[in-house]
Amino acid sequence: MGTRDDAVILRAIAVLLCSAWILAAGPPTAAALWLSLPPSATKCVSEEIHAGVVALADYAVVHDDDPQSMPTISAKVTAPNGDTLHHKENVTMGEFAFTTNEPGTYLACFWLDGANKGIGASVSINWKIGIAAKDWESVAKKEKIEGLELELRKLEEAVEVIHENLLYLRSREAGMRDVSERTNGRVALFSVMSLALCIVASVLQLRHLKGYFHKKKLI
């Protein structure tokens, strides 16, 4: 029993050294949003997520004026490639869940249904991503962990998520650097070609003017 407790304490020391940085610089994994829907327009929220991440969300209409006549909305969630991941119409609440297949911006849009145009309403959205979307209760039951050990497990996964995000950002930065270098090379080549063209044009113009002046016996 003592060995297990010692292992937990050692894990605590190792993981908690990173916890302050995680809290300060870690990527957002959950977002509670409140959208005010205008009478005849669509409002969207977006999240940039990399591949292989679980996303869960639930939404509900909030209408304080008359709870008995709750307006209905439509909701649509699309992937970066344009595929529809969730689409509901004439609802007052709903939820969606998906695992990302590709990195990019995932878009969730909401609008009032036709029968409710001119009313206006608000939508409450609770969007969870990554470790925030994980069912930790099931994990605790399956692996028979609780208390400090469970919290350490969460922190360990948070560290892994931070590491994966840093690798993802580094790969994106490398890709952007390659694009920038190629663009700079093309701009430099275009500049040299433009300069050469100007020089050739100037030489031809000079020869033409020289021949013209000779014909006119001006020189």
Rank of each mutant, 00 (worst) to 15 (best):
M1G: 08
M1N: 08
T3Y: 09
R4P: 05
D5W: 08
L10S: 11
A12E: 08
A12K: 06
I13P: 01
A14Q: 13
A14W: 06
V15A: 12
V15L: 14
L16Q: 06
L17H: 14
L17G: 15
C18S: 15
A20H: 11
W21G: 15
A25P: 04
A30V: 08
A30G: 07
A31M: 09
L33N: 05
W34S: 15
L35Y: 04
L37K: 00
P38L: 06
K43T: 10
V45A: 03
V45Y: 02
I49M: 06
A51K: 05
A51I: 00
V54I: 07
V54A: 13
A55Q: 06
A57F: 03
Y59C: 00
A60S: 07
D64R: 09
D64W: 09
D66K: 01
P67C: 01
S69D: 11
M70K: 12
T72L: 03
I73C: 04
K76D: 03
V77N: 01
V77K: 00
N81W: 02
G82C: 00
G82P: 01
T84N: 03
L85Q: 02
L85G: 04
L85M: 03
L85S: 04
K88H: 12
E89A: 12
N90V: 05
T92M: 07
M93S: 15
F98R: 01
F98K: 01
F98I: 00
T99D: 00
T99W: 01
T99L: 05
T100N: 00
T105M: 07
C109Y: 03
C109Q: 03
W111M: 04
G114V: 06
N116A: 13
I119M: 14
A121D: 02
S122W: 00
V123A: 00
I125D: 01
W127H: 06
I129D: 01
I129H: 02
I131D: 12
I131T: 14
A133E: 02
A133S: 04
E137P: 02
S138R: 14
S138D: 10
S138V: 12
E143G: 03
K144F: 10
I145G: 02
L148R: 08
E149S: 09
L150S: 04
E151L: 13
K154G: 00
K154I: 02
L155F: 09
L155H: 10
A158F: 00
E160V: 13
E160R: 12
V161I: 07
I162D: 08
E164V: 04
L166D: 07
L166Y: 11
L166V: 13
R170Y: 08
G175K: 04
M176S: 11
M176E: 11
R177K: 14
V179N: 08
S180A: 12
E181R: 14
E181L: 13
R182G: 05
T183F: 07
G185Y: 05
G185N: 09
A188W: 11
A188S: 11
L189H: 10
L189I: 07
F190I: 11
S191K: 15
V192Y: 12
M193T: 14
L195I: 09
L197Q: 10
V200W: 09
V200H: 08
V203I: 10
R207K: 11
L209W: 12
L209H: 10
F213L: 15
K215F: 15
I219R: 13
